[in-house]
Design a binder for these strands. Sequence first.
DNA 1: TTGAAAGCGGTACCAA
DNA 2: TTGGTACCGCTTTCAA
Lengths: 334, 334
Amino acid sequence: MVSIADVARDAGVSSSTVSYVLSGKRSISSETQRRVEASIHRLGYHPHAGARALASSRTSVLALIMPLRTDIDVPVLMGFVNSVVTTARNYDYDVLLLTNDEGPAGLRRVADSAMADALLLMDVEDEDSRVPVLQSLSCPGVLIGLPNDPGDLSCVDLDFSAAAKRCVRHLADLGHEQVALIGPSPVVYERGTSFAGRFLRGFTSAARERGLHATSQACLPSYEGVRDCLDRILTEQPRLTGLVVHNEAVLDPLLSELHSRDMRIPEDISVVAVTPDEMAANRSVPLTTVSLPSEDIGRIAVEMTMRELQGVRSPEVRLLSPRLTPARSTAQRH
Amino acid sequence: MVSIADVARDAGVSSSTVSYVLSGKRSISSETQRRVEASIHRLGYHPHAGARALASSRTSVLALIMPLRTDIDVPVLMGFVNSVVTTARNYDYDVLLLTNDEGPAGLRRVADSAMADALLLMDVEDEDSRVPVLQSLSCPGVLIGLPNDPGDLSCVDLDFSAAAKRCVRHLADLGHEQVALIGPSPVVYERGTSFAGRFLRGFTSAARERGLHATSQACLPSYEGVRDCLDRILTEQPRLTGLVVHNEAVLDPLLSELHSRDMRIPEDISVVAVTPDEMAANRSVPLTTVSLPSEDIGRIAVEMTMRELQGVRSPEVRLLSPRLTPARSTAQRH
DNA sequence: TTGAAAGCGGTACCAA
DNA sequence: TTGGTACCGCTTTCAA
């Protein structure tokens, strides 16, 4: 292994000089600088991460805690992960990926053993037991999602309440009076997943505000689930003309089910969905969507973390404004 | 921060004794053992990862290198990641997640700076430039996938060649004589992605072996892509009765396109697909599938790594046998 | 069965 | 502008 001492010897300087060349924390004559850099390059020197962490109390690692669920939207999750890792590298950070199956104790383990400089949590619940633990830790934490009480933690997420309102108003503006929400799986609601509740409340309140008749149903991610869900909705609202879908996994089954019930889109029923941009275009019908910008959210989460790590303590709840892109799946009510 | 010295003081022993209690590398009187463990628990002690890495030259971290692509099967990728992380934790390892956008230099950086004890690569290409680099590194590497020349690296993957043969023989056994393969995106072939070529060769060779008329087409993951692909295939084989689909992303579009062309499954055409188990059931038609066991593959990759880390140097290419599950989408040719 | 102490490879303070 | 060195927290050898 090439150590800093090897570089120092090769360049004919002391090891502290090498260290300072690397960190830029004191001025170096350009001649020395050049020689040291040449030696570093020639020897292929990479500072030992553990030694550096020990001496500096900084790891240049972010810990990302990922849900280990099957009921979750995989492409969205992957979008977060990708964008967190990519953005972190732009700041010279690496990412340690943890699953949630150690629970709050996992957070403590990682922080207390100084494996990371900060923790990012995904899949936040309304009353998330990890939140108080995270606050008690010495290292910064940032949430992707919004719990009931974020305390002094920074959060970033799509403004799901505003997103739901945007969907409802879009349908209302098109003259629809009977609308329904197809939501995530029942389990997602049951465990108090933050975004699901916020969307539902936004939906309900916007519908009331515009005087629409509105119902909502959780929906299992299967063809059968979609059929049941539609049955229940249509029983209650036989004259339904507008659907808001907050469940990426059921979109294909839903479109196919509507087709086989001879409910034409948009002539008989308008559909607006929440989904990542990449997935919106490629459907049997081009969908009007509110986009779920997982890339942006991941990037912002890292940027917030970086600010905290630079000592700027300004906890912030950042809810991104929804953007609705109209397409053929929504139209004026006939 | 609670250090080993704090624990030692609290328990009235030396810090080396604490270390040995933790590692179990020498015998300890049960009384001492008890006191030390009590102190550890009471103080909430976690060894400093960096210090430990520095002193022991072991990090208890695996580096997992992930492709940063949009043309890849996200659920499969996520299956690998999940199972690698989960299995690693069972061995008391954590996982550092890297993207491939640093290229081979990224591998060198991680290994040389001693951030991980071993590297796992995903999305391996036939002639993968990372493979020689990985071999030149001091730390073990395991491939998820199979390059043309794995050298002395261990590899694990589904036996895609056998999987293709399994599909073809299934159709042949049902009396089909005109079969076609719908493969991944053209780019996947172009960059020499290992599994795509192996599947294609297996398909061709099994078809020849059974005297079937067979063609194959790469397929863009969109409705339009599927239409084009079907057009090309049916032009060449108007009497096609069997389809093998090796492209998870186009399954829904394909089923819907076949439906709108009035090609009934399985009366007019039989369909067999390669896809993760979780995804097979929930289609408009229950699909006959060869399953892509991403969980198993990830787990085995970690187990191989663990063996290498314990000094057992027995490079091994492990290709998992395909398992075909018949369902309604394939039937005797009419 | 246990303790003392020499590193591991950096960082950053104190001197020069 | 640079060098010397104490120290970060742990592992492991050597001695008792």
